[in-house]
Design a protein around this nucleic acid. Structure first.
Length: 404
RNA sequence: GGGUCGGUGCCCGAGUGGUUAAUGGGGGCGGACUGUAAAUCCGCUGGCUCUGCCUACGUUGGUUCAAAUCCAACCCGGCCCA
């Protein structure tokens, strides 16, 4: 029995991966069984609202979840409002900061907001949003002890993240051991047929299977997708590494980042983030990269916006014409106090993170006004009107049109 | 609870009384180069409407003309013992 192509695309691993027609061993069989019984599968995916922005690394999961929805199944989206307060230790080299309830709630809200464009929120029966505080917040001690009894210290220490930290003599807080168990218990709570996750979630998802068995449920399938590399092309896309492409960014920013992606990441991006066949891409590496950037941007912002972003990006990097281009984002001078020295202007307008940084950039020859290099951080501008309509530039890619 | 070692800037990691935001590496940001990127080379890398002023070496006090460096208490961590 074969898996449908929409399901198999981009898949990194599936367990159990039996070839039989046993619906507990083979996902294809489980799908067939569901279809025969007219019962949609319950496909779980959990997000911990620890930040506020969703990026492409997350969106590959949601695309797969959407594919399940489109095939008639139920996406069970777990908002880990309780587990977020512990923090998933997976991939972490240090104990995570625990978040308070308020921050978690605010994050959860903005998360859901951003998901509207990715998931089917409208068709009845296709989406269930659950918060795991519903069943975790009042988990009583006897139940907890029961959970703790299902795993051993040895199993936990076999997990890479823990064993390397332990080996390095770094602290591991006891509550971190709880995380995989609680995530697993989520699967029990929602009676999941499938849990979606990155390959780094293998342990946690397997834990869900153990717990489901423990509570006499049919164990879920683990469907793993690759970890999307970030804009550096190597390390996992993650906010703390600063290599993300966010869903809420302007199309031009998205396109520009993607166009600069290392070559090795191009095919994975196309496979995981678009519906294109990687074999159809241009052979020339540069053209290939541009095609990928265009397609991914289009999947996020629509074809029209993507084409405009591509055209704008092209004029921007050509430098000279940048001052003419309508693509340059505008920045208001309303909040800037005049007279303004150059370093202050740069930071006040948001082009540099701090005025000290702005001074450095100017001294380093990175700043231009209408294409002319500024050299003196203390150069003074007396009135907003003198700057109205002019283009301030940092480096080769950051432009702002100043408006009085 | 006892012993012991340790807590330095985004990260790692030197520094052990005295120009100086504090060696070095990583990362980041700029510049040159290239098909963008990568690689390589160079510069920068606490904050502030700034040519000076603030805040910084776990916390709080203390000694001193002067402390990341000495002392005390406290907090946190690793390892060993109980």
């Amino acid at each position: 029995m074969a898996l449908p192509r929409w399901l198999e695309r981009g898949m990194a691993d599936l367990f159990p991966a039996g070839e039989t027609d046993d619906a507990d061993q083979s996902l294809a069989a489980r799908l067939a069984e569901a279809e025969a019984a007219a019962r949609p599968l319950r496909v779980k995916f959990g997000i911990d609202p620890t930040g506020s922005d969703i990026h492409l690394g997350h969106s590959i999961m949601f695309r797969k979840l959407r594919a399940f929805q489109d095939a008639g199944h139920t996406a069970v989206l777990i908002v880990g409002d309780f587990t977020a307060r512990i923090g998933d230790p997976t991939g972490q080299s240090a104990t995570r900061v625990q978040l308070d309830g308020k921050a978690v709630e605010a994050n959860a809200r903005t998360y859901l907001d951003q998901l509207r464009s990715l998931l089917d929120f409208d068709t009845p029966g296709r989406l269930e949003v659950r918060r795991n505080s519903d069943w975790l917040a009042d988990l009583d001690l006897p139940r907890l002890i029961d959970l703790l009894g299902t795993a051993t210290v040895g199993q936990m220490l076999a997990k890479d993240d823990f064993s390397s930290r332990h080996g390095d003599g770094k602290p591991i807080a006891l509550h971190e051991f709880l995380y995989p168990l609680l995530q697993g218990y989520d699967s029990v709570a929602v009676n999941a047929d499938v849990e979606l996750g990155g390959t780094d979630q293998t342990f946690n998802i397997a834990m869900g299977r153990d717990l489901q068995r423990h509570f006499r449920q049919r164990p879920q399938f683990g469907l793993l997708l690759p970890i999307l590399p970030g804009t550096d092309g190597v390390r996992k896309m993650s906010k703390s590494l600063g290599n993300t492409v966010g869903l809420r960014e302007a199309p031009l920013i998205t396109y520009s980042k993607l166009e600069k992606l290392p070559d090795a990441a191009v095919v994975p991006y196309v496979t995981l983030l678009t519906d294109l066949d990687p074999a159809d891409l241009p052979r020339d590496p540069r053209q290939k990269q541009r095609a990928m950037a265009l397609a991914v941007t289009a999947s996020l912002h629509g074809a029209e916006a993507a084409h405009r972003a591509q055209a704008d990006a092209a004029t921007l990097v050509s430098g000279a014409s940048a001052t003419e281009s309508a693509a340059v984002p505008a920045a208001s001078l309303a909040t800037v106090n005049f007279p303004a020295k150059a370093f202050y202007l740069l930071s006040a307008v948001g082009l540099c993170g701090s005025s000290s940084d702005a001074s450095r950039q100017i001294r380093g020859g990175a700043v231009r006004l209408d294409g002319d290099k500024l050299t003196d951080p203390h150069q003074c501008f007396t009135a907003a009107a003198d700057l109205d309509g002019r283009v301030l530039q940092l480096g080769k890619t950051k432009f702002l049109r100043l408006l009085a």
